[in-house]
Every structure is written in structure tokens, then in C-alpha cells.
Design a protein around this nucleic acid. Structure first.
Length: 273
DNA sequence: AAGCCAACCTGGACGC
DNA sequence: TGCGTCCAGGTTGGCT
């Protein structure tokens, strides 16, 4: 379940691995995973070189002259870099063969909220990127506060709304709320500006730590670009995520788990108000 | 307009 | 051991 830190880690590794490399062939194994653009627009990447790989929110963006290839990893997406002669594993949807004998493969078993978008250069259509709010790591505190302070909905659901804030998923929203001492159910307009400011600081802090933790595993000589973010999750200390029923690390109170807006939320009923 | 919620999908964990 | 059930979660679109 890659969120912003995992997408950044993947993009950084991928950039280091494929920038300047030429595309020899493109094979779309599952037509329905191409969400915008056509197979024809995908073929235009052949004989071109990758300029850059970066991210927008949770999306990994590969840049080349024919445009941008936007990979929406969704719940279970991975980008695998492997020798072209290696067998193709199940749930491989897109294979980009490089002229140096490697493949970049998009693999995704659960295809929820996942897909590939081709955005031609100069096009007004930004696909899924068009509706994204500011990057969670870059939004200034004042803008964060003004975007949230008058809303009536639960803070947790606002943090998860990618049109307000790009890149925050279920894990880091829970962690940021825990660090800031705010209950996930609390209405945005019932949180003081100073506490929203603290939440902004907590969010940036936890995302920054996670990005740093993902980067720390760059050193290993793993031929795969691991996109499930697992290393990152284990490297970062979790106060609440996945710890429902266990004691709060700060006060010892049993952490409570509840479903909010269709997703699980864990919080400390004593520390978070 | 803002916000809520179901639907999408499949591997893995868990219970009997 | 094996089967069934449930859960995880990002995004969209339809509804209120």
C-alpha cells in the first residue's frame, strides 16, 4: 500500500537505475490496466530514453520525450526491475524492455485503484494528477490550516482526501494524528489553528522520517525495485498503525481500533482528543 | 457544494 | 489438513 514515502523511494531508485536508458519494446499484457492514453501512445516510448523518474502524490512518474508514463500503484502495485530472460510472474500488466537486457515490469495482483496513464507532452489532460491537492510534504502550514479549518468532516477523512492533500494514506494519517494528539474522528472545524499547525508539523515529520528510512535501504544490491513499501514500514516506528488492542507507547492505555469512512483507524483514547 | 459510501480485487491470515 | 470467511486499502463515481 504505497503512500508518498514509498512512491518517493521507488522513484529515486528507479531514476538511479534507468535514467538515460533506452526503451527497446513495450508490451501491455492487460489492456484494461491502461487507464488513459492508447496502446499506440505507449508504443511511442520505443527507441526513446528515460529522462527522469519522480512522483506526484502516490504516483510514480516516468518522463521521456513522448510524454509521461504515470504509474498508479494502488494497493498492491510493484515495479520490478529484472533481467529480460527471467520468467514473467503472474499479474504482470506491463513490460518495458530496455535495450540493455533488462525489463521494467509493472506487477499488481489486486488491481484496486491501480493502472497506467500515458500523458503526452503539452496535453491539457493531466489524467489523475489533475485533481491532486498540494504535496503533503510541501504544503506551507498556513495553507494546510486554511484548507482544513472550516470543514465539518472528520480530520482523518480530510487527511485522506487527495484533492486536499496528495500522498497521505491510512498509515501515515494515523501516525500523524497520534503524534499530534488528535482523535481521528474530531471534526476539522473543532480543532484550533495551533493544533492544526502541530498536526502539519507531525505529518511532515513522519513523512520525512519514512522517506529517510526508505532511502536507507538503497544500499542493498537488490535487483528489484521493491514497490510494496514493506521495508519502509518496518523501518519506521509505528505508534498506532496496526497496533489496535495493544498498549499505547506513551501512556499504556489500550489502543482502540474503529472503522471511519470505510477504513480502519487506530488511536489512543487517552492521548488523542 | 461538501461529504459519505459502496464498489472494485485478490492474497493472506485466521477460525473451525 | 482443508475449507470457508474476512480483512486490507486508494480512488472513483453516484448519491444525498
Amino acid at each position: 500500500m504505497p503512500e508518498l514515502p514509498e512512491a518517493r523511494t521507488i522513484a529515486r531508485r528507479l531514476h538511479a537505475a534507468i535514467a538515460g536508458c533506452e526503451v527497446a519494446a513495450v508490451r501491455l499484457c492487460r489492456r484494461d490496466m491502461l487507464k488513459s492514453g492508447s496502446p499506440r501512445s505507449l508504443r511511442r516510448f520505443v527507441a526513446q530514453r528515460w529522462d527522469r523518474v519522480d512522483t506526484r502524490g502516490k504516483y510514480v512518474v516516468l518522463h521521456a520525450r513522448p510524454g509521461r508514463l504515470v504509474v498508479q500503484l494502488g494497493m498492491s502495485g510493484r515495479l520490478v526491475l529484472t533481467e529480460s530472460r527471467q520468467p514473467i510472474q503472474p499479474h504482470t500488466h506491463l513490460i518495458i524492455t530496455l535495450s540493455d537486457g533488462r525489463d521494467l515490469r509493472s506487477v499488481n495482483p489486486r488491481r484496486i485503484a491501480a493502472g497506467v496513464h500515458v500523458l503526452p507532452p503539452g496535453s491539457d489532460d493531466l489524467g489523475p494528477l489533475a485533481v491532486l491537492g498540494p504535496e503533503a510534504t510541501d504544503i506551507p502550514p498556513a495553507e494546510f490550516i486554511s484548507a482544513l479549518r472550516s470543514r465539518r468532516r472528520a480530520i482523518k477523512s480530510a487527511l485522506l482526501d487527495s484533492s486536499l492533500l496528495a500522498g497521505v494514506g491510512n498509515i501515515y494519517s494515523d501516525e500523524a494524528l497520534a503524534r499530534a494528539g488528535i482523535r481521528p474522528t474530531r471534526r476539522c472545524d473543532r480543532i484550533s489553528p495551533s493544533r492544526l499547525r502541530a498536526l502539519h508539523a507531525s505529518l511532515v515529520e513522519v513523512l520525512t522520517e519514512a522517506i529517510a528510512a526508505g532511502g536507507s535501504s538503497l544500499a542493498d544490491a537488490n535487483p528489484f525495485v521493491d514497490a510494496d513499501g514493506r521495508e519502509g514500514y518496518f523501518a519506521v516506528h509505528h505508534r498506532v498503525y496496526g497496533r489496535g488492542g495493544q498498549p499505547c507507547t506513551a501512556c499504556g492505555e489500550v489502543l482502540r481500533r474503529m472503522v471511519l469512512g470505510g477504513r480502519s483507524s487506530t488511536f489512543c483514547p487517552r492521548c488523542q482528543r
